[in-house]
Design a protein around this nucleic acid. Structure first.
Lengths: 279, 279
DNA sequence: CCGATTGATACCGGTAGGGTATCGCTGCAG
DNA sequence: CTGCAGCGATACCCTACCGGTATCAATCGG
């Protein structure tokens, strides 16, 4: 089983069409067919059911698809990390969502810079649903995540701190003047359906609220009186003048964690995590 | 970068000797040298410093060695799991240390067998330090671990239960009649140095106590008055006549968890975990 | 300074992998 | 029912890469 074969298989399994897959791989269709057939012969397993009209995955094929994706990801990570390690000046890529913990992040970077042998830290701004993939394929070494919203599956984490959540409302809304509020009161507002964020795959959950990608978009929509949202205190600490942040009594606390791939043995990453936990 | 190349590189990086590595790979030395050189050229990185007398790893080489090992492990796992999935009767391999939770295990297997669509469960008896590797390379699907002794890095876990620990002493020892004991009292016995178990790599920590591999060996040595040990209650519930198990007041509790590889999407494994958490 | 050890180089043969042309099956249109 | 379009498999060819043998070159020990 070679990586090239896995790349071929993933292409076919995703396209479910040998011709399209060959096009994507920039090769002709016949050698692709043969490569898949050879892979099946070596494994002794049928991966794809093909009629001349339709290609479908078998159970075993579905398993291999998932395994192959993570192997390809690991291979890409290996290349990146190996090249990184060859650089004389060590660099460390920290993936953060744009909204994450402004002050905490600044303190973390300051404290780490003071460490002896500190690497140059590159910030990689990204959306929440990309972070896990970035860590796994080596484009990032460490990430700041918000549990329980972001998934930390397959990652090792250290808790940095927990905070409550606030509801962001138009300043003119009747509830905006309250000093505290309950979750049920916010979700029960028919005129302000909760905004929807993209999930792990980048797709949106079902619901009546508008789809948003970032806080700026979101705050604009809230100011317009079209929606509302519940976010961590720190993210809503300093909203626009025309918005109000009302603390929630009963929302689950949000935990900010620092996360890294389990097998990571990077000195610089370990240092950063150590510094982070001491803040 | 191909899997074959990674296999070659790992062999050379471990042997630090092209000739030996070639022998291990059952091939001649020249093609091996060329393959490594090609890999270095493709990565644009020097992985090994070679004089004609001595081969050493560069930093980048050390990084790739660790990455490559986990990729090879993942590839082996992918093959095994794919073949498994092709079997009509699903099987599930559960890795347990010989001493783990006799009664809990029996209840778990009974309860799972009653599930609709239950897979055949194969028990894979092994030593503690192998379990993580077995899960990662696909030889096992699920494992029972004892935290904090066993490492669960890179694994997802669910807590099954916690228990106290007991000291196992010769029945004739002055402390053997006590109904409770403190950790410091046990570790402070110069005539009974604590036994040493192999760690994660299979190597033993430093210390005066004897090296042991399993409970049978250990109990024999304790009966002879050569050593003592602190183990979970359940493992020491039923010692030989010539031994005494004394509960410890202040030893950290041992948590038995069920663990599986994070990316695992196996139906059968998920079912087993669900059953386990309901026990 | 010589010889043994060890990695690199030169050269060769077989085969795997990629390309083009074409076949054969299947589903759909009329 | 028949013909066509779409698609994967097969046949055939060629190149390049992989692995083998023979040999070179550099380094270290005695």
């Amino acid at each position: 089983m070679e990586i090239r074969e896995l790349r071929y298989f993933v292409a076919v399994a995703e396209e479910l069409h040998f011709g399209k897959a060959a096009q994507r791989l920039e090769m002709a269709q016949p050698p692709l067919s043969r490569a898949i057939a050879r892979l099946e012969r070596q494994l002794g397993v049928t991966l794809l059911e093909r009629t001349s009209r339709r290609v479908t995955l078998t159970k075993a094929g579905a398993v291999l698809l998932s395994e192959a994706r993570s192997i390809l990801s690991a291979a890409a990570a290996a290349e990146r990390r190996t090249r990184q390690a060859a650089q004389s000046r060590p660099r460390l890529v920290l993936a953060v969502k744009s909204g994450t913990a402004g002050e905490l992040l600044a303190r973390l970077l300051d404290a780490y810079r003071a460490e002896p042998g500190a690497a140059t830290v590159d910030l990689l701004l990204c959306e929440a649903h990309q972070q896990q993939e970035l860590l796994h394929n080596g484009q990032a070494d460490v990430a700041l995540l918000h549990l329980p919203f972001d998934s930390a599956a397959g990652l090792d984490t250290e808790i940095l701190y927990s905070e409550g959540q606030v509801a962001i409302l138009p300043a003119s809304h009747p509830l905006a003047g309250r000093s505290q509020i309950r979750l049920a009161e916010v979700t029960a507002l028919p005129e302000l359906p909760m905004a929807r964020w993209p999930g792990h795959g980048g797709s949106y959950p079902e619901g009546p609220g508008p789809e948003v990608q970032n806080l700026t978009q979101l705050f604009q929509l809230i100011a317009l009186g079209h929606t509302t949202v519940v976010i961590p205190e720190s993210a809503g600490a300093d909203p626009r003048r025309d918005l109000a942040a009302v603390p929630l009594l009963d929302a689950p606390p949000v935990t900010t964690v620092i996360a890294w791939p389990s097998q990571s043995r990077l000195r610089a990453a370990a240092d950063l995590v150590r510094v982070a936990t001491r803040l």
